[in-house]
């Protein structure tokens, strides 16, 4: 569960298997919810979606609704699991902090060649902000979706005001969700972020990348390191899967000098990437 380094393989574990399962449960059910949510609009027949081989079901609103509900179960269970599991374990490495907004602007400027990136913790400040934004969107979708389901299931005469609010919150946050998913994927297209892509599929990122770009995270790991079970690397002590422990400790007054931590590796890697 803890982040650990495998020096021999030049890898560091960034996400636990459980976190990968959470992410992909949300991601895949979310995509299915987007698709079937769109098909709740009467567009399947009009736009010939029903005539795509294998999509004849797309014009049947009862079928699309059933698929929407099945995906919603996965989505909601994963979201609630995520909040309660990591919340109880105090893993808050993805939660935004003071100064993240300002720092994000600076980081985004570096994508356009303006200035140098600051040393990062496990997550970039904009990742923490994006996480919070996505969390709000998902929360609103779930709450409004549950109200709509309750109305369909138990109370078709639910107050018009409540029904109307739930519908439009669901519709508006649907649009925001689609935008957020596109932005989330687009962020990985940006070159400096690409080494993180393998992380969400395999759980690990390259060690040299992590040392160069996430020195604050690695410093937290190294400060509390203990040998790993396989004897080929080491394991961060109280470093939880989401990096909360590391981030929390580092930012609580023991922040290492980034230049010192990063050392010449940062300079070397930078040369490589340019």
């Amino acid at each position: 569960m803890t982040d650990h380094v495998s020096e021999g393989k030049n890898l560091v574990r960034r996400h636990s298997v459980l976190e990968l399962v959470e992410h992909w449960a949300i991601a895949l059910s979310g995509l299915l919810l987007i698709l079937t949510g769109l098909l709740e609009l009467p567009i399947g027949k009009r736009y010939y979606v029903t005539e795509i081989p294998g999509f004849s079901w797309s014009g049947d609103f009862y079928t699309t609704l059933t698929i929407h509900y099945i995906a919603a179960v996965v989505f909601i269970v994963a979201a609630f699991f995520h909040v309660f599991y990591h919340g109880l374990l105090g893993e808050g490495g993805m939660l935004p902090r003071r100064g993240d907004l300002k720092e994000s602007v600076g980081v985004i400027k570096t994508f356009f060649g303006k200035g140098d990136e600051p040393p990062f913790e496990k997550y970039l400040p904009e990742q923490r902000l994006a996480y919070a934004g996505m969390a709000v969107i998902i929360a609103m979708l779930i709450i409004s979706g549950l109200v709509k389901t309750y109305k369909n299931l138990l109370d078709p005469q639910l107050s018009h005001t409540v029904t109307m609010a739930a519908t439009w919150i669901h519709n508006i946050f649907f649009v925001l969700f689609v935008a957020a998913v596109i932005a989330h994927i687009a962020a990985l297209v940006i070159k400096p972020n690409r080494p993180m892509i393998r992380g969400i599929f395999t759980g690990t990122v390259r060690l040299d990348y992590a040392r160069r770009r996430h020195p604050l995270w690695m410093a937290g790991l190294e400060r509390t390191k203990t040998p790993s079970a396989d004897g080929r690397g080491w394991v961060g002590g109280e470093v939880a899967g989401s990096g909360a422990g590391a981030d929390g400790n580092v930012s609580s007054g023991e922040k290492p000098d980034p230049e010192h931590v990063a050392g010449s590796e940062r300079a070397n890697d930078k040369k490589e990437e340019s």
């Binding site: 509900y69 919603a72 179960v73 909601i76 269970v77 994963a78 979201a79 609630f80 699991f81 995520h82 909040v83 309660f84 599991y85 919340g87 109880l88 779930i142 979706g145 549950l146 389901t149 309750y150 299931l153």
Partner: peptide, 13 residues
């Protein structure tokens, strides 16, 4: 669907 928050919460706990 209506039970899923409880299921997720229980699993998380």
């Amino acid at each position: 669907v209506l039970m899923s928050p409880v299921i997720g919460m229980g699993a998380g706990l």
